[in-house]
């Protein structure tokens, strides 16, 4: 996993609540056995006018010009501004893989679905929670200013607007540590092998039917 420390990037607004992971990456692309290559199919149903299939040449497909991802002013965006309950539904990690593969490293929303939120941290994406009023303000600022960029500093836990307004955010200490250093947690968990063995031995004695 790539570390995340500090980023200044263009913000793309996605102004709808309850965006589900089926919308982020439709099911037909989940047949892949790889982790990469999902970016061209991010928001596929909304982004193209035809039905996408895996292995298709996406370059010639008809584009939905009205969808925000296709607007010239948001090309190269690395920060996704979203509404509440972002990433609800399916547990598919293909959703953060698609966001990352497209180029997004930060999502800012008032709330997230639990599984998606968790999956982001496993893939070097920082999901930031800000209150609804602040989210409303950011939507207005993005809309009014072409090329609108935010600076996101994970160490300092701040989002800074172009006018210099500094907005603090909370992040779990353990997750922050892993993200700042690009650490995968399997290695960290395996440092506690003795604890796991000790628990397991007790479990085996108390509930032997779980072990076959």
């Amino acid at each position: 996993m790539d570390a995340f420390t500090n980023l200044t990037g263009i913000v793309m607004p996605l102004d709808r609540a309850n965006v589900d992971t089926d919308a982020i990456i439709p099911k037909q692309f989940l047949k892949s056995i790889k982790r990469s290559g999902f970016g061209v199919n991010l928001f596929d149903d909304w982004r193209y006018l035809d039905t996408g299939e895996p292995g298709m040449d996406n370059s010639g497909r008809p584009i939905n010009e009205d969808f925000v991802l296709n607007k010239p002013r948001y090309q190269g965006a690395q920060i996704l501004l979203a509404r509440k309950n972002f990433g609800c539904g399916s547990s598919r990690e293909h959703a953060p893989w698609a966001l990352l593969d497209y180029g997004f490293r930060v999502v800012i929303a008032p709330s997230y679905a639990d599984i998606f939120f968790n999956n982001c941290f496993k893939n070097g994406i920082l999901p930031i929670i800000l209150d609804e009023a602040m989210i409303d303000q950011l939507f207005k600022e993005v809309d009014a200013n072409e090329g609108y960029e935010l600076n996101v500093d994970l160490e300092a836990q701040t989002v800074t607007t172009p006018s210099g307004e500094v907005i603090g955010f909370d992040v779990d200490e353990f997750r922050k540590h892993c993200l700042l250093n690009g650490l995968d947690d399997i290695g960290l968990t395996l440092q506690h092998t003795d604890d796991i063995h000790a628990y397991e031995e007790k479990r085996r004695q108390n509930a032997p039917w779980l072990f076959r």
Partner: peptide, 9 residues
């Protein structure tokens, strides 16, 4: 439910 990274974990 869990994601694929957690499946591996």
């Amino acid at each position: 439910g869990i994601g694929t990274s957690e499946v591996e974990h």
